[in-house]
Amino acid sequence: MNNPQLNDRGGLRHLLTIEGLPREILVNILDTARSFVSLSGREVKKVPLLRGKSVFNLFFEPSTRTRTTFEIAAKRLSADVINLNVQSSSQTKGETLLDTIDNLAAMHADMFVVRHSQSGAPHLIARHLTRQNVVNAGDGRHAHPTQGLLDAYTIRHHKKDFSKLSVAIVGDVLHSRVARSLIHVLNILGTPDVRAVGPRTLLPTEIERLGVRVYTDMAAGIRDCDVVVTLRLQNERMQGPLLPSPQEYFKSYGLTPERLALAKKDAIVMHPGPLNRGVEIDSAVADGPQSVILQQVTFGIAVRMAVMAILAGQGKAGAA
């Protein structure tokens, strides 16, 4: 099957979703990121790989962390970065998505980093373009591939090997593109035990088909886990009565020190941010010794640098 993310030589041309990517490409991204992590100890933290290239950060949906880390990543690669908050510009005047893209392409963009509330928008843009690379920075409920990769990087950093791990993903899996991307990464990298833990109303139907085990009981779900990933309760995406109240949710699924004690002693706690303290996670856990939440943010820069550097390096190779 033709994968729109790959060029005719099997190299990565766009990063739209983790699904369907070969293991070697994921491992290569994580290995390259490791080299970028080591830059942070230097006097000059930049490398010249994307010198003279223009990266357009196209955010059709608000974001602070992801947009900022993409911006830092592009700047550390020496690219010129243009941030566009499209909500407040042409689209509100009625311009179509692809017209916006054509205009930006005419300004000699080399790469688009796209976040959009509609699943599939980055695919549409990637199909439309012939020269530029597209990175999906989160589309609707579909995918957030760089988040999945930075989660995998953080897990690998602490646990080395995926082949014996139990990973529990707790909370609002239904609305979470983070969860979907992470599940795909973990599967491709050979994680034997991936669990989705949460109330039935927040777990997608047939999620078992993604290769995860489903738990509606929090205690059973995180028992003996190596990694606990708590997801943000996405109030802005909730429609209808999926939950009685955030307080009720915390009672049953909030990650407290008592519950975390059920996981392995050396289990790490992750969260994609932003945190709802006292809703999905207790402050004592979020700020506790097992939390690697802020490390995820730092690693996120290196992982995004790796993705952009690998994509930019495929530019001419595809045409040759």
Partner: peptide, 13 residues
């Protein structure tokens, strides 16, 4: 870099 891209399996300096 532009012709060949990043070689796979770089090692940290």
């Amino acid at each position: 870099f532009v012709e060949k891209g990043i070689k796979p399996h770089t090692s940290p300096s």
